[in-house]
């Protein structure tokens, strides 16, 4: 049935893509795992005695605080994105088909614009002499400019601004898929509006929520340029710690261990996402 000619084509394609992934994804990641169990060396970056010092260092109360603070900011970002994005995606799914296309287009336009430049634009707005303070002062709401720039809040605003579309898009797609009939059925059975929301809508949109959380939480821990520009080089993210360890302090094992924490977080979120999808599948069947 299969012609002979297809084999070399198929083999060549598979070799190409597997080669690429093995050489540029798998191998490098194994290197990072390897680096994380080696010893810091001031001259050659890494040296031999294998140990878990880097991981122990992660749980040093001092660094733990850095991590928890970064996690806190990423979690806040995700929460804000969810709070804004959930009703947004719902409202979006209610709009007429034609208008929906335009609105989605408008949502991804900022995503196609350079993220550094957009972060910088936020600085113009949040600065002491910036537009927001000038506006608030000119309408007499405040007398003294608010300190907005170089705060934890500024970092979170920046992250939310950059990552919001990543929360909205997966949520929108689950709202689109939500079966209208299912809601009607729930109504017919006498469930109130609130009860419908809690028992039907929330569980059904859970995969979308988790996909959104995954798409927001992970970058929110890594985008090191946001604290650099809006946080006054304070309020560091895990990404800043990793970058500093690799490019300033030259402690590669520790930087590698910190990056593995991110990978593990990702694995955990992916697992939760799969699980939620499977459960929905079972309930639907």
């Amino acid at each position: 049935m299969h012609s002979v000619m297809q084999q070399p084509f198929k083999t060549a394609v598979l070799i190409l893509v597997w080669g690429w992934l093995l050489f540029l994804v798998l191998a490098p990641n194994l290197l990072v795992v390897g680096a994380s169990v080696m010893t810091r060396d001031p001259v050659s970056f890494l040296s031999l005695p294998l140990n878990l010092d880097a991981y122990r260092q992660l749980f040093d109360p001092l660094y733990l605080e850095v991590f928890l603070h970064s996690l806190y900011m990423a979690a806040m970002t995700t929460l804000v994105c969810l709070l804004i994005g959930y009703p947004f995606a719902w409202a979006l799914s209610k709009v007429g088909k034609q208008r929906q296309l335009i609105l989605i287009f408008l949502l991804i336009v900022p995503f196609w614009t350079n993220s550094l430049v957009r972060t910088y634009a936020l600085k113009l707005i949040l600065a002491t002499n910036g537009l927001l303070n000038s506006a608030l002062m000119s309408i007499g709401l405040i007398d003294e400019p608010l300190q907005l720039l170089y705060t934890e809040g500024a970092v979170i605003i920046g992250l939310v601004y950059l990552l919001l579309p990543f929360m909205i898009l997966p949520l929108y797609s689950v709202f689109e898929d939500l079966k209208q009939e299912l809601l009607l059925a729930s109504h017919d059975l006498g469930a109130g509006r609130f009860s419908t929301f809690v028992h039907v809508i929330v569980p059904l949109t859970l995969p979308g929520v988790l996909a959104g959380v995954m798409l927001v939480l992970l970058p929110a821990m890594g985008l090191f340029f946001v604290p650099d520009i809006l946080g006054g080089s304070r309020n560091l993210l895990v990404g800043n710690v990793i970058k500093n360890q690799f490019l300033d302090a030259r402690n590669w094992p520790f930087g590698a261990a910190a990056s593995i924490v991110l990978t593990v977080t990702m694995a955990f979120l992916m697992f939760a996402h799969r699980l939620s999808k499977r459960r929905i599948g079972e309930e639907g069947a």
Binding site: E65, V66, E152, N244, A249
Partner: peptide, 14 residues
């Protein structure tokens, strides 16, 4: 290295 550790703590503290 000692400086580096305290430096990071300092910058991430509130």
């Amino acid at each position: 290295q000692v400086y580096a550790k305290y430096w990071e703590m300092l910058k991430s503290g509130r």
